[in-house]
């Protein structure tokens, strides 16, 4: 049974890694993402681009089931997310955790293996071996026993990456992994992304630097509350689309959302 299940996953993998269908997401009744429809082929590096507040983080969180969908559905390798959790890795925005928390780098990376461990089982030798490998892959083996506050921003970002690698997923969501890292770290992270792609992983990356989009990504998702465009970089990352994403009249949607919220009776 298990073997055939795995085989099936491999087959569908070669086609569509992520499919979002007609998705709308709202916070307290105010929609922040409208009717998103997109398909991401497997094995691509995908940039998610859009201004602040465009809903990039929300898109990821909705795909991961961290915020409820107002409508629509998300499929990962052709199945709903809750059947595919082992196949999905997540790197949250760095500010999302308390870096004073009493854990070491090793402890955090070990958390990546918890999903496959399940209830009650403790990480053992094989999990620690995975952690060692992932730490090495991101180049912070020497820092394994440091408390996470005693790291630079770039090193903290690498810890999160290592934790995601330890998940050994097929599809990864990275929320601004390049934020606040120096050029050397950025290059190292990008190299890592390429390695992941050559292992036929699909990686979605929220990215703010428009200069590097062409160099880094195969695919791009342009987002500003609604989907502006999604497709291969060469055809999608155009001046026109960028203008629509950053300069267009999308605020109308914003106003519409606001008006809707006003009309709702206050409870």
């Amino acid at each position: 049974m298990a073997a055939s299940g795995r085989y099936l996953r491999k087959c569908t993998m070669s086609t569509t890694a992520l499919e979002i269908h007609d998705m709308t997401v709202a916070y307290q009744r105010r929609p922040v993402l409208w009717d998103i429809d997109l398909q991401i082929p497997a094995g691509k590096l995908v940039g998610i681009v859009g201004p602040n507040g465009a809903g990039k983080t929300t898109l990821i969180k909705a795909a991961l089931g961290l915020v409820p969908l107002a409508s629509g559905k998300v499929e990962i390798h052709g199945k709903p997310y809750h059947q595919q959790r082992q196949a999905v890795g997540y790197v949250p925005q760095r500010e999302s955790v308390d870096w004073d928390f009493p854990v070491t780098v090793r402890d955090v990376v070990l958390m990546g293996t918890y999903g496959s461990l399940g209830w009650l089982r403790r990480p053992g030798r094989s999990e620690h071996a995975i952690v060692d490998r992932c730490l090495q892959q991101v180049g912070i083996s020497a820092l394994a026993n440091r408390q996470i506050r005693q790291l630079s921003g770039g090193q903290q970002q690498r810890v999160f990456l290592a934790r995601a690698l330890a998940q050994d997923a097929q599809l990864y969501f990275l929320d601004e992994p390049f934020a606040g890292v120096d050029a050397a770290t950025e290059a190292a992270i990008f190299k890592l992304l390429q390695t992941m792609r050559s292992a036929h992983k699909t990686v979605l990356v929220v990215h703010h630097d428009l200069q590097t989009v062409r160099d880094y990504f195969d695919h791009v998702i342009l987002l500003n509350m609604r989907l502006v465009a999604c497709g291969p970089v060469e055809t999608t990352f155009t001046q026109e689309n960028l203008h629509l994403t950053y300069g267009g009249r999308l605020t109308i949607l914003d106003e519409a959302a606001e008006a809707m919220r006003q009309r709702e009776p206050q409870r």
Binding site: L64, L66, D98, F101
Partner: peptide, 22 residues
């Protein structure tokens, strides 16, 4: 003692824990 791993994970990074299905 038995749920240390789960408690630690949820206290440190709830979103990540939830994305793993906890």
């Amino acid at each position: 003692f038995f749920f240390f791993k789960e408690f630690q994970l949820v206290c440190f990074d709830t979103d990540f824990a939830q994305s793993q299905g906890w």
